[in-house]
Design a binder for these strands. Sequence first.
DNA 1: ATGCCCCATTAAATGGGA
Length: 268
Amino acid sequence: MPFSLTTWNINSVRLRIEAVARFLKEQAPDVLCLQETKCPDANFPHAAFKEAGYEHIALNGQKGYHGVAIVSRHPFANVDARDFCDKGDSRHVAVTLDGKFGGVEIHDFYVPAGGDEPDVKVNPKFAHKLDFVDEMGAWFQREPKAGGKAILVGDLNIAPLEHDVWSHKALLNVVSHTEVEVTKFSRAQKAGKWCDALRKFVPHDQKLYTWWSYRSPDWAGADKGRRLDHVWVSPPLADSVKTMRVHRDARGWERPSDHAPVTVELAL
DNA sequence: ATGCCCCATTAAATGGGA
């Protein structure tokens, strides 16, 4: 049975609710995972999602910063959220689907950006990012359960491969592409036996981006992007991923997020 | 090789993004 899922760092769900509604109308994924909702749960724009057909909503939001949400056409059997690094911030929410896709686990992550300086001695935000990724790896030793069907998505804020950034050489010492981040990222991915669903479709020697800085006066022309958003699937789903698309056009909409939505289709 | 930016909060800066 076909199943589609989109991940999108929306950079304020309230500010961009019309863009979200347009996307859902045009693309109609089964599930949408958002990051950087910047919205307390009490203020989440439920009505717009319900009108669009997404009646099932799992939230882990907070005031002003961060925040994740999963909205779905299908019911949830379970909702969970984990407080990585015990900081009380909203960077993870998970659901287990019920109904015709029953048993499939979906994890939505917003990994810390890590600040400017890639040095834990002077930059606590970078230390937090590295600790966060380490804790993900430790948790993936037991989660998801062996043999389980799981999908992990989100703004992981690390571009691991050489061609996940516009210039490997220029970004080697830039937070998101440093060696220590990439090493920890790969370790966490291996710990959960996660399969990189996006790179299944794009060879490693070809550029693949999901994010373009607001600071560029001509983001599309300069095309100095990074692949910060990811979709991983557990081993039982590795062969079920049928298509992948980065919706680059949405980066060019009026008052856009700096991240493009990314959609995968699976045969479940 | 960084960036001319953008968002939320709280009241014209500040913190955060990446």
